[in-house]
Design a protein around this nucleic acid. Structure first.
Lengths: 346, 346
DNA sequence: GTGAAAGCGCTAACAG
DNA sequence: CTGTTAGCGCTTTCAC
């Protein structure tokens, strides 16, 4: 990026200018104290090595380290120990971390929480174009990651390589065959929704689905919804969302047997549906009720929806990754419960 | 985290189970192809070394690498080359990446964009407690980072160490003495705001300020606001925000000479002020106008505010860091322009 | 208890 | 043009 559009730009060299001095190395520190590098290593990384260091030398080392402001070089350590304490996050669709798409934000926050708990760092990736075999940046990461949290709606070249790789991967939200997954109970959510709507007396349901989504999570929501509705003897019409939505919505609402409730596959879209409805002059829920799915706190406060613990989902994914780096078995599937959130729209 | 609250948890071992085989090393690949490691290194990292490799061997190497699915070990490379291509982001106050605080999200997106442009990765940190001399995780990062984008409102032990360290740091939004900074033109913003309000005929202004903020950016907004107002002969009362705000607001609005406009130091708070005003039965802007500052797209659509290019700010910060790792000089201060955004609240 | 030495996997000299 | 070699800074045997 050029800074040509900056209004002012003082060109005084920055204060913390490139200093030629390289950081203190462990060998130097050891020499300074008058002990061997191994002693320093043992003391500073308090490894559970059987080798013991006398309390006095230990103190000498600690003090010198503090005094000389010594910081061990993490990448050298990583190379030696063959792990980095870095967890990666990668998503293959949707906007990255955006206000309009709070979903990914929530996922990231959960990962951050998990990293904190497990003393890991988080390395984040932007969205990568799935262009053929062109190596996406993820491919460059051999050795850099202890594990990867993957958010991808459908298998592709990258996920395939990930399955075959020896990098520990946990997927969130959507399942990828061959990879352990943590997600929420979409089926329970749909059942809860249908039961609630049925008991409130709604009869003509429109299920609003995104045809571009291959998401296993979304598919489960829909099929479970239809099944439960059938169980209640409710008629459900499935509508595949189209763009722009307003004309379609207008036609639907103009029909004689127009729906008395529209169940949308996620909150964001539900929000847009409500806006479109309002724009067409319909009141929610007076003229037609609307429900969503996800319940990200704070994003669509009045929506009747399913609250799914997405932050916990990604937090759990990190925990699983941590377990796996300790060579422990991890479940191939973890499904977190959801609950009905009754708002004002249904 | 325990998974005791998970509804279902199949304990079948995960499919991509720990494989004992370690990734292919460069030496192995070289041996396989029948060339030297250096040849492989030169071909795969297409360094501008003077050493040339024949086209045929180059092809042989490339093909073998693809066939054997070889990925260079990034941490070994980093150790050797003394840089990692990782940029860190660290913030010392506020919520991390949250829907309620879209500011940090925007910053992160800008960094991500910058990283993409400069082929860097982003390593993210959670917020670290500023507890005395206890080493925060950032301290553990010697060698891991090529540079750091810092968002901190005031100097503290960590920023001090950063100033003294040889890690390239660029601060965003707020200045920290001794560190290069990129921010927006807060002073211009305030001037724009005041001019607009003055021309619209507002006369009794309440400037809503956050007393807990040491932010240099916020301080500039205020002082510039007051100065410009004085220039227009406008009376401005400064109110230090308190919690809860409603009672205070009620008293203010009950006064005879109550303000006809409240200028809040940032959009989020402006939003809360409007909510409180509504709760008290006042209409905006009929009873009282409100302005904000920041203009994060999409967060508070109707607000009259200053649009500041925060995403560009952090993007620029990354560009600066990239320049610095190429040993080029960078400006100690970069100030990006802002513009007035006229909404419905003033 | 301590210190020397062998790598982790890669890059960049340098001599063939 | 290719191969050998010497590290990057740290951890971890293994002798002493």
């Amino acid at each position: 990026m050029d800074n040509s559009n900056s209004l002012k730009s003082a060109s005084i060299p920055a204060d913390n200018a490139p200093s030629s001095e390289r950081p203190l190395t462990m060998a130097q520190l050891a020499k300074h104290v008058g002990v061997s590098a191994s002693a320093v290593s043992v003391v500073l990384s308090n490894t559970n090595s059987r080798i013991k260091v006398s309390e006095t030398t230990r103190q000498r080392i600690l003090e010198a380290a503090r005094e000389l402001n010594y910081r061990p070089n993490v990448v050298a350590r990583s190379l030696r120990k063959q792990h980095t304490n870095i967890i990666g996050f990668y998503k293959s669709y949707g906007e990255m971390i955006s206000i309009e798409y709070p979903f990914a934000s929530t996922l990231v926050r959960g990962i951050l929480a998990g990293c904190r708990e497990h003393k890991k760092d988080l390395l984040l990736y932007g969205q990568v174009e799935m262009s053929g075999d062109n190596a996406p940046s993820l491919e460059m990461l051999n050795g850099q990651l202890d594990g990867l949290v993957l958010y991808a709606s459908e298998p592709n070249a990258l996920t395939q390589r990930l399955v075959e790789s020896n990098l520990p991967v946990v997927t969130v939200a959507d399942e990828i065959t061959g990879l352990p997954c943590v997600t929420v109970d979409d089926e329970l959510g749909s059942r809860l929704l249908v039961r609630y709507l049925a008991e409130k007396g709604y009869r003509r349901i429109l299920y609003w689905f995104d045809p571009n989504q291959f998401s296993s999570s979304l598919v489960k929501r829909q099929s479970s919804y239809l099944k439960e509705a059938a169980h209640y003897g409710l008629k459900v019409e499935v509508f595949n969302e189209c763009d722009p939505m307003e004309p379609a919505l207008k036609m639907i609402m103009a029909r004689k047997d127009r729906p008395d409730v529209i169940s949308v596959y996620c909150d964001e879209e539900a929000h847009f549906v409500i806006q479109a409805l309002n724009a067409l002059g319909f009141q929610v829920p007076k003229d037609v009720a609307v429900t969503g799915f996800d319940g990200i706190p704070g994003s669509h406060p009045d929506l009747t929806t399913i609250r799914a613990p997405w932050k916990q989902v990604s937090h759990t994914a990190v925990s699983l990754l941590a377990q796996r780096s300790e060579k422990r078995m991890i479940p191939s599937q973890t499904i977190l419960p959801v609950e009905l959130l009754i708002g004002k729209t249904a």
